[in-house]
Amino acid sequence: MSLQDARNAAVEKLLSRRRLSPLELLPWVIALGVYFFLPQYLTLGSQILIMVLFALSLDITLGYAGVIILGHAAFYGMGAYTAGLLAVHGWGDPLIGLVAAAIAAAILGLVSGIVILRTTGLALLMLGMAVALILYEAANRLHDITGGFDGLRGMTIQPIFGYFDFDFFGKTAFLYCLAVLFLAWLFVRQVVISPFGRSLVGIQENADRMAAIGTPVARRKLIAFVLSAAIAGIAGALSAQINQFVSLSVFSFELSGTVLVMLVLGGAGRLYGAFVGAPLYMIAQDQFAKGDPVYWLFWLGILLIAVVLFARGGILGVVDAVRETIGRRLTGRVAVAAADTKSSAGS
């Protein structure tokens, strides 16, 4: 293959990511199917959509920028408390709540990102955890404002656009979450296929080399971190508005760990890991954790160990590997056939 061919192939590969493949529409078809045919699962469905959004936000930092953060719940909680407090104090318009939550979480992401992204390794892990822990303790201490350990109650959420009221069956809530997730997905997809997104992957793979070819590594990472924080904040706000309740657990280490597990089970750095991992996790938890949550924890632990030891890329990684093997077999056969024709023609 000549240099020109290789270049064309690379460009083709990059461009092919931009095209929407039919498979990418599958999550939305399934979600609409749930809405029309499984109305009894709409409440669970809304929670799943929120967690998909949360895991999607983590994918930007973890999967693309390669920053291992064990305190992503900090931004989710920031968004949840922002939207919740607004609704308690009379600004119950859900969209204003979302925007305010995104801004608040982005500011937190900017301030904490400037500080913690300077470190690596253990210090980075610790500082990420510390951000969420500090907010947890602060929210607990400020119980006059946040409700402390009892949680934040008494929100009045106005209808969306002043027209679509939140109904008892959760139909509006489901569609609301779905619409927000859809827009966020369009945005994140655009980000990760853009040159900016490619440069994040480059930074993850070799930060020194990216710096050497002129990429402002620290700034790119910070931007990714802020974007990720803002989207996590939106997810938190959705949760606050739909449940009309915010508890301290939004800042908990458990939540940070859970979202990480969801993303990794699905496959990090693949954009769709969140769409696979979060629903599977939530549905499995709903099924198995009802009777005995500890039993569920055991199998979750075993599953995590198995994923790390045998399936690094998560479920989507396994799917990719299988597809690649099949693809190689097929092209191999074609190549052999082509070689056969050539040699027979030559002789």
Binding site: L260, F298, L300, G301, I302, L304, V308
Partner: peptide, 24 residues
């Protein structure tokens, strides 16, 4: 020789499993 993420996940898996065993 794997990345930090794998080590974090693996040890979280061990933590979860150990919690369940201790609880049981």
């Amino acid at each position: 020789d794997a990345g930090e993420l794998e080590q974090v996940l693996l040890s979280m898996g061990l933590i979860f499993a150990s919690i369940a065993i201790a609880h049981f």
